[in-house]
Design a protein around this nucleic acid. Sequence first.
DNA 1: TTTTTTTATACCTCTATTGGGGAAAACCTG
DNA 2: CAGGTTTTCCCCAATAGAGGTATAAAAAAA
Lengths: 143, 143
Amino acid sequence: MFLGEYTYSIDEKKRLAIPPKFRPTLGSRSVLTRGLDRCLFLYPLKEWEQLAAKLSGLGLAQADARGFARLMLAGAMETNTDAMGRILVPDYLKEYAGLEKKVVVAGLYDRVEIWDEKTWSEYKEKTESEVGDIAERLKELGV
Amino acid sequence: MFLGEYTYSIDEKKRLAIPPKFRPTLGSRSVLTRGLDRCLFLYPLKEWEQLAAKLSGLGLAQADARGFARLMLAGAMETNTDAMGRILVPDYLKEYAGLEKKVVVAGLYDRVEIWDEKTWSEYKEKTESEVGDIAERLKELGV
DNA sequence: TTTTTTTATACCTCTATTGGGGAAAACCTG
DNA sequence: CAGGTTTTCCCCAATAGAGGTATAAAAAAA
């Protein structure tokens, strides 16, 4: 289970450290792809395989489903973590997410998300004001 | 069951002691999250897992559900209590709750709440003055 | 008052993070 | 196809920071 948010910097060789707590769960092979809302998704290989199967089964009928599947499948790339637990972020993904120097790595239960620090803080502020009453939402979930 | 309120100080390494009475119930692994009214919630791992599974089950499709899950899941952090019964409070949560030196740890039946001492006393004063109105409303609830 | 538990601070060890160097592989170009 | 250039990967090192431990003081209990 991935939890928490961490800040790292991408070095000039496009290497990005993964939080030590995430490393055992991710394993040595993981998949990096375009995510929603201008961030990147990072999955353990097994989780990715399940998701990819679901995505390719999404039927060709709807244009938006096709677009979504293309976004994630076409942009996917397997990444090997080096001895220090870092992954290499390819140019086209770095550009997609607008990653500058400072980057936020966030754990979201079954996946890891990678955001540019600025984009992340803007998104959080926006969401906090829109989501409104957290207590109400939690009650809907039966907590 | 968590009961009572205690005052502790966070050391310069962001470590915070948990009341000895709470330790057996929390176990060695627990989860610290953003709470309501600028405090932090601390759950035993098992309790949290139920909530997290529900949040992650909301799926990727809707933008507002995504945002809500991101706030709650990325905002959470698993904390291991050390040999002296202390937990580590990450920067972003310390900042969220405005924790300074003195901190109040309060038991609320099934969860633990963590407040900055100043925020806590202000909140209490405010609530005590409204206590009459609240009692009226509780009567309506049949308490 | 004595004993025991607990809190807080200081210190020390170890791990994590970030940087760089160099080898190998891939790519482009002439 | 050969030479040169760029990119990727692997190894190593230094520093800083985090995590663990011990001790002394304080509080609580007997």
